[in-house]
């Protein structure tokens, strides 16, 4: 039965008529499913086959509105089917359904041609939002935690829910525009309520983002998800901290790569650390 459920549907959202070994699916279904006075074994099995695909496609449809808009609903749906064929859910929660989507987009660039780079940027950004929404948090540092430590000894961890992204497109602004243009509903994982086939949504078209280097921190504050644009040096300090460098080493390496020598880096970096601390981004690794 599992093999039947995971097999992709036909373009008309029906169960495939031929089984993987060349037999008719009718024959296979009849071997283990009873018919009744209204439905054949094939038709009864088809209900489950359809419900599986409607459920998982509906989930990706909701979780990736940006990628869906970039590709268009039809192309997005084909991509989602190909993705789920290779990477079916391996988690008890639909929340994790997109956890290998970026990997798949890199493995199979044809699905997103000619917008591969934009699609990958958007998939990364949308997954980072899932992580920021309910990802794990560690106790944020307070002043007492670091009072006695000098910058060349101090190592700060970044919250696991925080993602640092270096992107080639301004997908942050684009996603805001996409969400404004369509109803922004949250998915609830309900009991065995059934789902319907993916549909195109009626909404105003949103112009695709232009190529533009964007550095982002996707995080949450007071349990709301935000993305914050970062300056290059800011991004470099944070990525260095993420790799486990001390505060002093992170700042030093970030500034050594910066060509901007005309700025008051001491004051700027202090402000950045004040902001990051206030946002709760740091924890003290044990």
């Amino acid at each position: 039965m599992t093999n039947a459920l995971f097999r992709p549907l036909t373009p008309r959202w029906g169960m495939q008529k031929t089984w993987s070994d060349g037999r008719s699916t009718k024959e296979v279904a009849a071997q283990f499913i009873k018919p009744n006075d209204r439905l054949t074994s094939f038709e009864r099995l088809e209900i489950y086959n359809r419900q599986y695909w409607f459920r998982v496609l509906d989930c990706l449809h909701d979780d990736y509105p940006g990628l869906r808009t970039i590709l268009g609903t039809s192309k997005f749906t084909k991509l989602a089917i190909a993705y789920l064929e290779r990477y079916p859910s391996n988690s008890y929660t639909l929340r994790d359904l997109g956890d290998r989507l970026e990997q798949f987009l890199r493995e199979e660039p044809d699905w997103t041609a000619p917008r591969q780079a934009l699609a990958i940027d958007m998939a990364r950004f949308e997954w980072a939002q899932t992580v920021a929404f309910d990802g794990p948090a560690k106790r944020s540092i307070d002043a007492d935690d670091i009072l006695t430590k000098s910058a060349d000894q101090l190592i700060l961890g970044l919250q696991p829910y925080l993602s640092l992204l270096e992107l080639d497109y301004a997908v942050d602004d684009f996603l805001i525009a996409v969400k404004k243009s369509e109803e922004d509903g949250l998915r609830g994982e309900a009991s065995n309520a059934v789902h319907s086939a993916p549909r195109g949504s009626r909404r105003k078209p949103v112009r695709l983002p232009k190529k533009q280097k964007v550095l982002l921190a996707v995080h949450r504050y007071e349990n709301m998800v935000y993305s914050k644009r970062l300056e290059p040096e800011e991004y470099r300090i944070l990525t260095a901290l993420e790799k486990g460098e001390t505060v002093a080493a992170a700042c030093e390496s970030a500034l050594s790569e910066s060509g901007r020598t005309d700025r008051d880096w001491t004051g700027i970096i202090k402000n950045w650390f004040d902001t990051w601390s206030a946002l709760g981004w740091f924890y003290l690794p044990s």
Partner: peptide
């Protein structure tokens, strides 16, 4: 679920 693959359905 079967072999670690989840259908997210109640079969």
């Amino acid at each position: 679920s079967v072999d670690g693959r989840y259908t997210h359905d109640l079969l």
